[in-house]
Design a protein around this nucleic acid. Structure first.
Length: 924
RNA sequence: GGGCUUAUAGCGCAGUUGGUUAGCGCGCUUCCUUGACAUGGAAGAGGUCACAGGUUCGAGUCCUGUUAGGCCCACCA
């Protein structure tokens, strides 16, 4: 037997165990027709990312599932990988180039993309390597990247199929534009944030003075109409002012001409139902190129949009003397000018939600531009049905509603991005056709205002490979679209693209649809909903049946962990300081079904302490059971001990722990099935620590340590081995390293990772014995309690008399005399219904029994009495004081009720204590 | 504005379909280095389950309302 240190030192094991698993090929899974598949796909982390606690939680959960299913005999596959994170990665590489004084424009597209690939070669595996430290049992041979050849093929295939089905179109619409990244973003990529803004009230004068009657009655400063806006600079692009047709204040003004200040352009007052009479002044400036509502309104009224900004957020030539100025700078100057001209009526504080770029947090500009969109309604319908019908289930359930609500109000998806890193659109423009249409500009690396009126579909060829010539005119001057696709356009294919789609591979056939998806709520819309739609569209089947959504990891103050807040707890630091098992165990223990997780470093002590407990309990078994026993007395043969007619009857303790084990296996497995990870973990924790260590090991210690191995120990060693092994198996998905370290320590044998998940054994379940043991524990706890009260050390053996009060109790206690004697350190235990209270004895009463502990000769009765009298006197003094206060008119008249109540309660408690002491003294 | 979610011991949280005495971890008090483990063991103190109603034989759990947090969505300029 090896020397086992009394501390579990993770550093001695984690690395070597992981590489052993990897070398043994345990992570790799091929289709295996003799087994059922269990498949999960990793939510592909951003390739620029580093492992944060959200990942740690997410991947721990996935690893628990995969390891559990693997042990249950499933062909358990976990496909890892990363996505290319177009904007984020491009930003990172641009930043590092900037340090060398190089811009991407200087480099040119091709060379820049080369640079990004180089970067990804160097750093792209960081997060994958970090997952290994966590113990993740992914099939690394299958690691995929969204820019891989196969996955890129899938992207083109999907795009072309959707286009041919009429589900992809190109058009001029208001999209979310990030002036810093200089690209369009989807609605999901431009989350709204509340900001403190201002509402500017601006007077637009009538073209001519038209007499007093036409002056708006509420605003008599000058003849004109007052509009309210949060973005005054956009007035340069105004084409009208709109009022509600039912608004009595303005009814007569409809059709009147206004002079747009600063620009000095004539615009008209139009009527539109969209306008809310109650907001602002009830009159809205209409800026179709910079506001989605205004865009729609202008369409209804046949007004041409005027774009006043360039892609970088600076004003353009339509902004006259503000040309070239930053949008916020222009805002200031325009406001100043309006004020000077006395056209600025007032400024109000106005808090509202403004879109921000999810990559760089720049304020989004709603911007009219020519982009590619996916028509979502037709895709959403079957995806809604799949969830409504229960084919796809969310855990916890409540996310179903969130999903359905979003899907039912889904809007088209802008998928083109004006960046270089990503899948270039499989779209080609025929320049000859374009010339004929005269307006088309296939070369659109700058979004000039003229592009607004492009006719979208002339000369457009969508094809996976570049065609030789234009199918319409035969022209050979074809140019590919400069844009790339949204990264999520590749991620949404992940469940099947990683298995080989569009080819019909064996993997795809066997592993698709996958079993479960584990993810954070943040990407429900980005990713989960879209995967469901793409799965049904391209594979004609749902991508997964279960979606488990875990909580968001926050710091102890409830803030989301983020680099900018500096409240990050680095998982790798925790692994180094506490162990991977501690990280895994702790993070699961504080994560109840889908609730957010509040983290602080101390919480990892739970896991570290438990790992150490497992280590030491196992150490005890290993030190007392010969290595041979593990093979010569296999746990599987346990059953025969309890078979009738055998000489080796199991003891009550053995039967009890086997019953508890069996029920723990059952409950744990059930909890895992419904994704209640913390419950499953808690069950094993309680069983192992409190049933097995605190009671069973203590109960069998004497016979294990005094007798040799073999049948004469009454089977306890077999039970000990059996329960330990099953416990380790139950713990393995949660704490893979420590359980494997022990497993390998027991003797040379195969990994616990591929051992069989325990089955509950009905024949061991015995509720009667479980409740009997509770009575025994009650007796022991009561004796210990008296010891504690009287300060009697364990070295002093006691004699205890018990009077059973209920039928059956005598038998129970008589059957466990040896346990009570050893666990409570008794000289003698007398169980007799006719016993009377001996003198100088303390008693305990429960519904099952009366207990007397004679203390004559054990302690110095007189000295103890003296000590208790002294204590009682002190309490009496206290009571007197409290009583005085309660009679004090001054106190009672002035003190608040709660203080008086507290004082009264205190008095009651002291009285009680005095009473108890009095009884003890009398008993002695 | 719509939706979701939370309120249980000093702190952080469990408590599945209503059912004995409401649990766990940390912290606290007292004791113990006993032959697996002080990252441990034993004993203990500590709760009007946010508030107000209601349903029920029975409510921490279900319903309604109130209060206070948190999150997500949303085109009132």
């Amino acid at each position: 037997m090896k020397d086992i240190p009394p501390r579990y030192n993770p550093k001695d094991y984690e690395e070597s165990i992981y590489s052993k698993w990897e070398k043994s090929g345990f992570f790799h899974q091929e289709p295996d027709l003799s087994k059922k598949p269990f498949t999960i796909v990793i939510p592909p982390p951003n390739v620029t990312g580093i492992l944060h606690m959200g990942h740690a939680l997410n991947n721990t959960i996935q690893d628990i599932l995969v390891r559990w299913k693997r042990m249950q005999g499933f062909a358990s596959l976990w496909v890892p990988g990363t996505d290319h994170a177009g904007i984020a990665t491009q930003n990172v590489v641009e930043k590092s180039l900037a340090r060398k004084g190089v811009t991407r424009q200087l480099l040119g597209r091709e060379k820049f993309v080369d640079e990004v690939w180089k970067w990804r070669e160097q750093y792209g595996d960081t997060i994958i390597m970090q997952l290994k430290r966590l113990g993740a049992s992914c099939d690394w041979e299958r690691t995929r990247f969204t820019m891989d050849k196969g996955l890129s093929e899938a992207v083109l295939e999907a795009f072309v199929r959707l286009y041919n089905k009429g589900l992809i179109y190109r058009g001029n619409y208001i999209i979310n534009w990030c002036p810093r990244c200089q690209t369009a973003l989807s609605d999901e990529e431009a989350p709204h944030q509340d900001v403190e803004g201002k509402l500017y009230y601006i007077l637009y004068p009538f073209k001519e003075a038209q007499g007093d009657t036409l002056q708006p009655s509420a605003f008599s400063l000058q003849p004109g109409i007052v509009v309210a806006t949060t973005r005054p600079e956009t007035m340069l692009g105004d084409v009208a002012v709109a009022v509600n047709p039912k608004d009595r204040r303005y009814k007569k003004l409809i059709g009147a001409k206004l002079m747009l200040p600063i620009v000095e352009k004539e615009i008209e007052i139009i009527a539109d139902d969209f306008v809310d009479k109650k907001f602002g002044t009830g009159a809205v400036k209409v800026t179709p190129a910079h506001d989605p509502n205004d865009f729609e309104m202008a369409k209804r009224h046949g007004l041409e949009p005027v774009r006043i900004m360039r892609p970088d957020g600076k004003m353009n030539e339509n902004a006259s003397r503000f040309n070239g100025m930053d949008r916020f700078e222009a805002r200031k100057l325009i406001v100043a000018e309006l004020e000077e001209k006395k056209l600025l009526i007032k400024i109000e504080k106005h808090d509202h939600a403004v879109g921000h770029c999810y990559r760089c947090n720049t304020v989004i500009e709603p911007y009219l531009s020519l982009q590619w969109f996916v028509k979502m309604k037709p895709l959403a319908e079957p995806a809604i049905e799949a969830v409504k019908s229960g084919k796809i289930k969310f855990y916890p359930k409540r996310w179903t509603k969130v999903y359905l609500n979003w899907m039912e109000n889904i809007r088209d998806w802008c998928v083109s991005r004006q960046i270089w890193w990503g899948h270039r659109l499989p779209v080609y423009y025929c320049m000859d056709c374009a010339k004929q249409a005269s307006e088309l500009k296939a070369d659109r690396d700058s979004l000039e205002p003229a592009a607004c009126s492009l006719q979208p579909n002339i000369g457009v060829i969508v094809s996976k490979v570049k065609p030789d010539k234009c199918p319409v005119c035969g022209g050979i001057d074809l140019r590919q679209d400069e844009d790339v696709l949204d990264t999520w356009f590749s991620s949404w294919l992940w469940p099947f693209s990683t298995l080989g789609w569009p080819e019909e591979t064996k993997d795809l056939e066997y592993f698709y649809p996958t079993s479960a998806l584990v993810t954070a709520p943040e990407i429900l819309f980005f990713w989960v909903a879209r995967m469901i739609m793409s799965g049904i569209e391209f594979k004609k089947d749902i991508p997964f049946s279960d979606v488990y959504i875990h909580g968001t990891v926050r710091d102890a103050a409830g803030k989301k962990m983020s680099k900018s807040l500096g409240n990050i707890i680095d998982p790798l630091e925790i692994i180094d300081g506490f162990s991977a098992d501690a990280l895994r165990f702790s993070i699961i223990s504080i994560t109840s079904a889908g609730q957010d997780v509040f983290l602080s470093k101390e919480k990892f002590e739970i896991g570290r302490n438990f790992a150490n407990k497992i280590w030491n309990a196992s150490r005890f078994v290993l030190m007392n059971v010969a290595a041979d026993d593990f093979s010569t007395r296999p746990a599987a043969s346990l059953g025969e001990y309890s078979a009738p007619g055998t000489s080796l009857e199991l003891s009550i303790a053995d039967k009890w722990i086997l019953s508890r084990l069996s029920r723990t296996i059952d409950a744990t497995t059930k909890a895992l099935k419904i994704y209640r990870f913390n419950e499953a973990e808690g069950l094993v924790y309680d069983f192992f620590w409190h049933d097995f260590c605190d009671w069973y090991v203590e109960m069998v210690k004497p016979q294990i340590m005094t007798q040799g191995s073999g049948p004469e120990d009454g089977g306890a060693k077999d039970v000990l081995i059996h329960v330990l092994e099953d416990s380790l198996k139950l713990l393995h998905p949660f704490m893979p390293f420590v359980t494997e370290a022990i497993w390998q320590n027991i003797k040379e044998r195969e990994s616990i990772m591929v051992s069989k998940w325990p089955e509950p054994e009905k024949r061991y379940v015995n509720k009667q014995i479980e409740s009997d043991i509770e009575v025994m524990k009650e007796a022991i706890v009561n004796i210990r309690n008296i010891r504690s009260d009287m300060n009697i050390p364990y070295s002093k053996k006691l004699t205890v008399n018990i009077v059973p009060l209920k039928p059956g109790v005598e038998a129970i206690l008589s059957g466990s005399v040896k346990y009570i004697k050893s666990l409570a350190q008794l000289e003698n235990l007398i169980i007799d219904a006719k016993l009377k209270k001996p003198k100088s004895s303390l008693s305990a009463v429960t519904e099952n029994f009366n207990m007397f502990v004679p203390l004559e000769g054990v302690i110095d009765i007189e000295a103890e009495k003296a000590r208790l009298f002294k204590k009682q006197d002190a309490l009496k003094q206290q009571l007197l004081l409290t009583g005085k206060r309660l009679k004090d008119k001054n106190f009672m008249g002035n003190a608040p009720d709660n203080v008086i109540n507290a004082e009264q309660e205190k008095a009651e408690k002291i009285k009680e204590q005095i009473g108890r002491l009095g009884k003890t003294i009398k008993d002695l």
